[in-house]
Design a protein around this nucleic acid. Structure first.
Lengths: 355, 355
DNA sequence: ATGAAAGCGCTAACAT
DNA sequence: ATGTTAGCGCTTTCAT
């Protein structure tokens, strides 16, 4: 007869030592073994305790966290939902920095990370179901989509939930930078240099950060009394290839801009490549700015003028926040950190004086 | 009286709908509900099935995967162990590429990833215990240390286990490139250009890949009848800063090399920075080679001559391999993929003819 | 001081 | 066709 146990034993996983095994060997009860090993509310005589520990070692006992989770309701695992559902996720510097912050902090807090990478299901319903299946104690969304309904669903369900980037939502703390302030600084920097025809390469407009940055660009231009015509706003998808294409579009315009403000560093890198590919020079023929201050923004010549976004710190704080919520403490407030202007080689006065 | 249930309900997680709740509501048994929802070995009349599904939706039922795991013994989660225990893990391009491969494939196979980032415990014993606590169905080690005893422990226990990089071990399939072949190609390339004084910046020598590459360098020099003196071998820790320091050491030698072969691209980037910082030029004053063909190796001027290592593909195959083992299929064979030489701007003939 | 037993939510064998 | 029940390995209450 093939019982369930026999089946598992034979074909799936090897049988591990359980508390019961130890108890049987020592002729004591499981509860005593449990208390001896984990020191709960009951005290166990030193002699017994040592014997149990000895046998546990001998038999190579390892507590089964799944079983423990069922009772305690705690997994000590935090779910992490990356921004988008495309292949080669980890090539995004933004995600890298965010994961570093989360990872470092998770280590300190003794939590493991379950990274959700299965995005066959695009709809928030399915994603939420996966997240709410009991394996994680809380969730961190990294730059969720606009209308990522999963965030709301999860929060409504009562599972602790925070976002890195994104916008504020009732009861869901978000940790982000002052996008508007950052873009304003960059545009002002370009204005101060004497630029008047300034274009914007926008990110994925289904992400809040991209939307806010676009609006900030438009506002900054408006305030300066300068036009921000539609053809000066090109979508760049937040990646190098997108920045490359977008810059080409701008260069093909009858009156190209003299400066381009990109919604992130990667698009700035692509944009610079496009300029160079035409035999033009950065910053002489075209000033370019980025956003994020990723490691590459420094390495890529001539060094990209950008805005420092403390993503790693922010992500770390997000991690602390979910943890607090999990621990039953009060829902911590959202946090908006200021950005810092980093001027490097990719911006200079325009060739022709346009003032 | 505060029962365990009340406690959890009140302070920790919200109570979710269970099969029992649905059964009670419909006045049928849990097993019927289970079969109606998951369609196991028992058939359920269409009418009942629909009613169950309806109520499940109404009550917002979500299966508890923890409970399911306890019985089936399957989590549909694969553990991933990153190479080292330092902060800012995700800045390593090697890890990024590996994770991409694993992630993409995990998506196809419908497996989630649990990334182990808690390395307060350096010793293999503790790491193995964490991994063997029942939450994952298999493990992928990325470039494990030499003497990473956890790998052996886990494999001995019977949990499916593979490595990306590293060396072959009995019963543990590894997926890696031909390190020796790659380094040989690079050294030969430098020799062909006319270099004779060739140094090596080695990686972390507690990693197999670093050791093998160092040996390959020494062999290649030996074969060419050229010296590879101790002062021409400097440790660079596999990162940019390490490459920078190492190159400075080499430049301070009474007779500096004319070319440096680095064990990875990042150290090559650091090395180039060090050369430039002294007002020297790459490749005119110093040829530099990398390893891995990371995205940056192309972007950093003058473009780094390197060796393409199909890390992403390799990692994907590793993922497929653990999955097969989990499914009870035979342990797949290890795989060694060839590398490909990528010649770019960072190498040229030495200034002085040394032949 | 410690054994027995009740579950956690689910699956699957066993009955009916 | 479907209800009852025995666990999975553990924690924790209850009883002794």
């Amino acid at each position: 007869m093939i019982t369930s146990e026999t089946f598992r034993e034979t074909f799936l996983k090897p049988m591990a030592t359980t508390l019961k095994d130890i108890a049987r060997k020592l002729n004591i009860s499981v509860s005593t073994v449990s208390y001896a090993l984990n020191g709960g509310s009951r005290s166990v005589p030193e002699k017994v305790r040592l014997a149990v520990i000895e046998v546990a070692r001998e038999m190579n006992y390892r507590p089964n966290r799944i079983a423990r989770s069922m009772i305690t309701g705690r997994n000590h695992v935090i779910g992490v939902v990356p921004p988008e559902m495309y292949d080669n996720l980890f090539l995004s510097p933004y995600l890298q920095l965010a994961l570093n912050g989360i990872t470092n902090e998770a280590g300190h807090l003794h939590q493991d990370l379950l990274i959700y990478t299965r995005y066959s299901e695009t709809d928030g319903h399915a994603i939420a179901d996966t997240i709410l299946d009991g394996r994680v104690d809380g969730v961190i969304f990294i730059s969720p989509h606009v209308g990522q309904t999963a965030v709301r669903r999860i929060s409504d369900f009562g599972l602790p939930c925070v976002t890195v980037g994104g916008v504020d939502q009732e009861g869901i703390p978000s940790f982000r930078v002052d996008n508007s302030g950052g873009i304003s600084m960059l545009v002002r920097h370009l204005l101060d240099l004497g630029h008047r025809r300034i274009a914007h390469i926008a990110g994925l407009l289904n992400m809040d950060d991209a939307i806010v940055r676009l609006q900030a660009y438009q506002n900054a231009m408006l305030q300066a009394g300068l036009p921000a015509p539609d053809e000066y706003v090109v979508k760049g998808r937040f990646d190098i290839a997108g920045g490359f294409r977008a810059m080409n579009e701008l260069l093909d315009l009858p009156t190209p801009p003299t400066a381009v403000c990109c919604a992130n560093d990667e698009m700035a890198i692509g944009a610079i490549q496009a300029v160079l590919a035409r035999g033009l020079k950065v910053p002489d023929d075209m000033s370019v700015t980025g956003f994020d201050m990723t490691p590459n923004s420094e390495v890529v010549p001539p060094g990209i003028t950008t805005v420092r976004q403390p993503i790693t710190e922010l992500a770390g704080e997000a991690m602390q926040a979910v943890f607090q919520m999990i621990e039953g403490k009060e829902c911590p407030p959202s946090k908006v950190l200021p950005t810092e202007l980093i001027v490097r080689g990719s911006t200079s006065r325009p060739k022709e004086d346009l003032s």
